[in-house]
Design a protein around this nucleic acid. Sequence first.
DNA 1: AATAAAGTTCCAAATAATAGAACACGCGAA
DNA 2: TTCGCGTGTTCTATTATTTGGAACTTTATT
Lengths: 265, 265
Amino acid sequence: MMSVAKDSASEKRDTGTLGKLMVLLDLVTHAEGPMRFTDILAVADQPRGTLHRQLSHLVEEGLLEIDADGRYSPGFRLLDLASRSWARNEFRLVSEPHLKALQGLTGETVHLGVLRGTAIIYLDKVEGQQPVRMYSQIGNASPVYCTGVGKAALSILPRERVEALVADIVFHRFTANTHTAASLLAEIEDIRKQGYAFDREEHEVGIRCVAAPIWSENLSLVGGVSVTGPAYRLTMERLSEWSGPIQETAKRIMEAMRIGLGPRR
Amino acid sequence: MMSVAKDSASEKRDTGTLGKLMVLLDLVTHAEGPMRFTDILAVADQPRGTLHRQLSHLVEEGLLEIDADGRYSPGFRLLDLASRSWARNEFRLVSEPHLKALQGLTGETVHLGVLRGTAIIYLDKVEGQQPVRMYSQIGNASPVYCTGVGKAALSILPRERVEALVADIVFHRFTANTHTAASLLAEIEDIRKQGYAFDREEHEVGIRCVAAPIWSENLSLVGGVSVTGPAYRLTMERLSEWSGPIQETAKRIMEAMRIGLGPRR
DNA sequence: AATAAAGTTCCAAATAATAGAACACGCGAA
DNA sequence: TTCGCGTGTTCTATTATTTGGAACTTTATT
């Protein structure tokens, strides 16, 4: 049964059988921990028999695992797929040297992220000394509205697309500085003019960042670079000083991407 | 009575529509670089119209990306799914402190891996000083027959299951020491008695390791830990000395896993 | 042992996927 | 320009898969 049509924002995906399976996969991967059959049955809108077959298929393909107690968890196949995906990603490969250079210049942590839906997915992270915990950040999806990269990315989208996107967001107040829909839209306008964005402890108290947008001509790729660090070290003055270098880095990455694509076609 | 055993090699997966889509996903993620529609058409055994719809669905779900030139690459959604999967993985979480301890003791790189099909998927890696390149190893799938963890894992499977698995493998000769089916089966027997496995430069010249198996009672989880390093530093004598500690680490992880599951059920 | 809860299997009916052809599009050559 | 050709996209009757509901089996609880 169809409920009342959601307004504009509601993306209606028509991916048939795959779509239904992805809903389940999302359910399990977003859960706190392993889910039992009945747990899933309660939230997935499917008859028991159907759900059972769907889960079996996901398990057989390695996208889900089922333990001895019949609890479902994300499967190891996802790691394999993702590691290949990451290793070969052109955007990441092209950006890498530029991220390192920026890290060297600032001494702080540098991130590379792309926009997907209303989230920023981090593709790379370059830290200074201490060993990096793998997957600690890479692959992570963070909300657009409280990350520097997210706001920078939004700033290069056409206004109507930003509005449509913002309408889809459910705003969670992480800190006292976290944006609301209205304040976000307002700041995007400023960022559009400036060419760079700050995160003034909007996601986590004590964490600030500067970010610059990166985009392809047709906007099929929209993301950004950022320099992040603790507020006590990264004063707003210092962040401002870095707005130049970070925009420069973004520019170089875009040029490098075009070179990659340019000559051949 | 059971039906006649399927001939070892012929794993016929019956995952309907999902199975067909996963074949495509594998195709694209295993490729050298982005694939054009026609490239995929040539290898995927599907009519043009059908393939087109399947790819569209995968793109719409974010499992694949299509660039301006119509070339398909793995999608960012995979990273998101995998990062969650990794972050919450119980086996990895439980093992982490033990891996660190082993790293501290040996000073060399420690790996945690699980068996999936005929591959070992690395779940974690603990290195000494230098910053780790993310995803560099984690999520990677390596052949069972030329990794310490792989051989250790096989050694705890019942003989007939090992034989069935080995029949599925296509052996690639990476180094002069790489196993063949026969030599692998023979060594598995030894490892079974010993309780630990070596990799004597069987995957990469100049790289050796010791590994011990880790398994759950019902064998739903089979994997291992290993200590890896350059041959000039890791003499076979030294590796032998570490066979004790590494088995001890494996044992502690297995105990910790049981504690996790034990009391509640 | 009896009862309830959880999980699995089955099959006619509904729905989505398929195959094949026809339709667009871009591009280089005549 | 027009033609041909390689690519990619859309359409539709046919076919195969998925669905839903119930019956059935197994596992926990009283």
